[in-house]
Amino acid sequence: MQYFKYFLAFILSMFILIPLMMAVTISLNPSNTDILANMGSWKSFIPQVFSFDNYRAVWSDPYHPFGLYLFNTFLITSISLTLSLVVNSCAAFSLAWGEGKYRKYILAAIISVLAIPGESLVLPQLLMVSKANLVDTYAVQILPGLANAFFIFLFYQFFSKIPKDLIDAARVDGFSLFQTYLKIALPLSKPVCVTVCILHFLGIWNSYLWPIMVTRGPEVRPLSVAMAAYFGSNQTQWGNVMAFAVCMAIPVIIFFLIIQRQFIASITGSSVKG
């Protein structure tokens, strides 16, 4: 039984690994004829040659500036994550510890937003941002995703579990609501912050429909969309395409594997308990 389980785990791992190993193997092969000849056999996922020619080609392609895409992605991601942490946690704290009776209506409105699929909003959003001349900017890729009903909900759940005594003590010490949030609640909520950062990052990393509509050229385009465009214009150059894919995916994969425990906790904790 135990051996059979190892066998299954091995099959499962191969099912996952072969496509990824294939990307690496093809990216290391400088000859496109070789790549095509090997594509249908095991040689397509076990490296035979180790050359960085394709990587050099990707990094020096004038029509697809990889460095610029990387910078765009980095900029959009870091600004988005920072602002979304602040905006959502701040709103959640106000909902959890404010005094107004209006809060329950706002909370209900925010929860009802969870039922709206983002895809059904993109067309009016597109019309609005083109009227506001925001197409092809960083802002248009950052702003629409900032306020997130689910993230507010996660923070709200956490903040409402803070003991009332702690909040009252802060008030007695003369802390305003905002100071209580900033100095007491926010530092306590580090695990939620990590979850929100990871989920928001995955959201940006996998978004495609919105960025292809609002970025027309390479100037502000992020990596994920650039990958599709690069594939579109270099379809037969498998070596270059895979080098592009590996360059963008590997750093992120390594980073998340290092924080694997926290990553898994974020995904499962936020979904099951939510």
Partner: peptide
């Protein structure tokens, strides 16, 4: 990222 998966 999904675009990388698609290309692979």
């Amino acid at each position: 990222p999904i675009t990388v998966i698609v290309v692979i």
